[in-house]
Computed example of a mutant assay.
Amino acid sequence: MADSDQGKTAQLYRMVMSEHLCPFGLKSKFLLERKGYRVEDHPLTTRQEVDAFQQEQNVETTPQAFIDGRRVGGYEELRVHLGLDNPDNETSYQPVIAIFGTALLMATAIMWFFSGAVFSLMTVEKFVAIAMILLGLQKLQDVESFSTMFLNYDLLAQKQVGYGYLYPFGETFAGILMLAGALTWLAAPVALFIGTVGAISVFKAVYMDRRELKCACVGGNSNVPLGFVSLTENLIMIAMGLWMPLRMYLL
């Protein structure tokens, strides 16, 4: 869609006042220019101008973008119009991809710094530990929202609501200990427990009950669908919970 709009003109009305420069207005202008539009910029420099524009267009917010004489809307509507976002708040795996991709790069960087090896069994261990920490951190940003979404499918949390509040701390704590290679006797059982309960809960909700839910794995406000990725996350924690004590005897 964006390719067909190349070379066209867009009008943008945005708030540019001495006490407030609207960030979404700047982002809208940047986005339109990046997509090849010549932007007719109309800064609204006073509160009176903003109020008059909103009343004239019957809108409650600025910025407002116009393309081909038709009002597209604000920044979020503009992103949808240009094909950058999904409409209707559809599910997306982007947060999970970002977290796991970052965790892999961090694990590789750590191993490269300490041993010069790009990939090894230790790299996998560090990757899982870092991923657990990052996932736990996402949940810890808003434990209340996480626990609410978690209750939709976790079997233990549905019986013991407090488990939903403890889960982010347990996941993060176990990940930190695994990253440090310390207190394996504590970290491994925690990872094994939460991974097992999580795997059973996800399997039941998705593959037995056939429910279409959002996963709380990256926090309570995510649009990540509950499914294979969620199950894999828990299976990896189970594998780490089993492997960490075993490696002490094998290596």
Rank of each mutant, 00 (worst) to 15 (best):
A191R: 05
K29G: 11
F114Y: 11
Y167Q: 14
I236R: 00
Y153F: 14
K204F: 00
T9S: 07
Q57C: 10
T91R: 01
A52R: 15
A180F: 13
S201P: 01
Q64P: 02
V16T: 14
E212Q: 05
D85N: 12
V80W: 00
N89S: 14
I99M: 05
S92P: 02
F193L: 10
L179H: 04
K27T: 05
E60P: 05
P43I: 10
R211E: 13
G195D: 02
M248N: 09
L179C: 09
Q160R: 04
Q11L: 00
L121S: 13
R210K: 06
F203N: 06
Y165V: 10
Y207V: 00
R38N: 02
E19S: 00
T148M: 14
L104R: 09
A109Y: 00
G241V: 08
M240T: 07
I110Y: 08
V229R: 11
L78N: 02
E40N: 12
G219N: 03
I99L: 13
S120I: 03
W112K: 08
K35H: 14
H20Q: 07
P23Y: 12
A239D: 12
I200T: 09
L213M: 13
Q94C: 05
L44Y: 09
F114A: 04
A199N: 04
K29N: 12
G73V: 09
F169W: 12
M17L: 10
E90P: 03
G73I: 13
A188P: 01
A129Y: 10
E19R: 12
S201G: 07
P168I: 01
F66W: 15
V161D: 03
G74R: 11
S201Q: 08
T91E: 02
L235F: 09
D209K: 08
G164I: 14
D85K: 10
E233G: 05
I67A: 10
A107H: 13
G7H: 07
K29M: 11
G7M: 06
E33D: 09
N152H: 14
K139L: 06
L44I: 10
D209M: 01
T232H: 01
S18D: 06
K126G: 02
Q11G: 00
P63V: 00
L134Y: 08
G195Q: 06
I236P: 04
A182E: 10
H20I: 02
T62N: 11
S120T: 14
E144W: 02
T45K: 11
N223V: 08
L78T: 02
K35A: 09
L235I: 06
S147Y: 04
T102N: 11
C215G: 10
M106D: 04
I110P: 04
